[in-house]
């Protein structure tokens, strides 16, 4: 465990720009792609990045809580999503794997381009918020990361109808809030509680994902 904590500490000392760029890339990936087989691995990577960013402000052992809770949540969500896909496959509906193997290139530009344009606006708004409404404290880079996560999370929540995708947006929003708060006021209790919130919200979303996968019952 000590080795893992030491590794997190070393990684958190990396230059901030690559970390921030990776975070923006992960948020972009989750916003643009609506296939859980791609978004959930990206979400895990995003939790790692958020953990590393948090380790710059709080003890690395506390940042590890974020990593572990994020991995557990993603694991729970992937089980629920797989089960939901199994049920869809039994009904002969298209599932995530098929959509990756046989991409419907004709419909992709219409969906992705619209989201990409909207995402550009959202990222601009996040950058503008960082400069126009800076959070207290000196860690500007963490504030930008927090604003990006919050804005992208809200964007996903507002634009998707499925429980799983809304849940992913909600988890991104919670990560952003945590990152913003930790950058302003590092606090052990709040970190632990937000880790717990992520876990329980993740379980609730997994439950709702399963319910969402069934055909409508009247």
């Amino acid at each position: 465990m000590n080795d893992v904590i030491a590794l997190i500490e070393q990684l958190s000392r990396l230059a901030i720009t690559p970390l921030l760029l990776s975070l923006v890339a992960s948020a972009t990936g989750i916003v643009l792609v609506r296939n859980w087989r791609l978004t959930l691995p990206i979400l895990i990577a995003q939790y790692v990045l958020v953990g590393l960013l948090m380790a710059r402000s709080i003890q690395p052992s506390l940042a590890l809580i974020k990593l572990i809770s994020g991995a557990l949540v993603s694991f729970a969500l992937s089980i629920a999503a797989q089960r939901a896909d199994d049920m869809r496959a039994q009904r002969g509906e298209s599932i995530a794997v098929e959509r990756i193997r046989m991409v419907a290139w004709r419909s992709v530009p219409a969906q992705v381009l619209l989201r990409a344009v909207a995402l550009l606006l959202v990222l601009t708004a996040a950058f503008g918020a960082t400069t126009r409404f800076p959070l207290p404290g000196n860690a500007r880079e963490l504030h930008f990361a927090a604003y990006v996560l919050i804005a992208c999370g809200l964007f996903i929540i507002a634009t998707t109808p499925e429980a799983l995708n809304i849940g992913i947006g909600l988890l991104m929003f919670i990560s952003g809030v945590e990152l913003g708060y930790i950058a302003v006021l590092p606090n052990v209790g709040v970190s632990v509680m937000i880790g717990l919130i992520s876990l329980i919200v993740g379980i609730a979303i997994a439950y709702l994902t399963l319910a969402d996968s069934e055909p409508l019952v009247l």
């Binding site: 937000i194 919200v201 379980i203 609730a204 439950y207 709702l208 319910a211 409508l216």
Partner: peptide, 28 residues
């Protein structure tokens, strides 16, 4: 923070055994 945790559990209560597309909107 505790009210948010409670809300996550309430979301499961809202859903209960109610299944189907668009059935999760209230809970979400």
């Amino acid at each position: 923070l505790l009210f948010v945790i409670a809300a996550a559990l309430v979301a499961i209560m809202i859903q209960a055994e109610h299944i189907g597309e668009r059935s999760t909107h209230g809970a979400m």
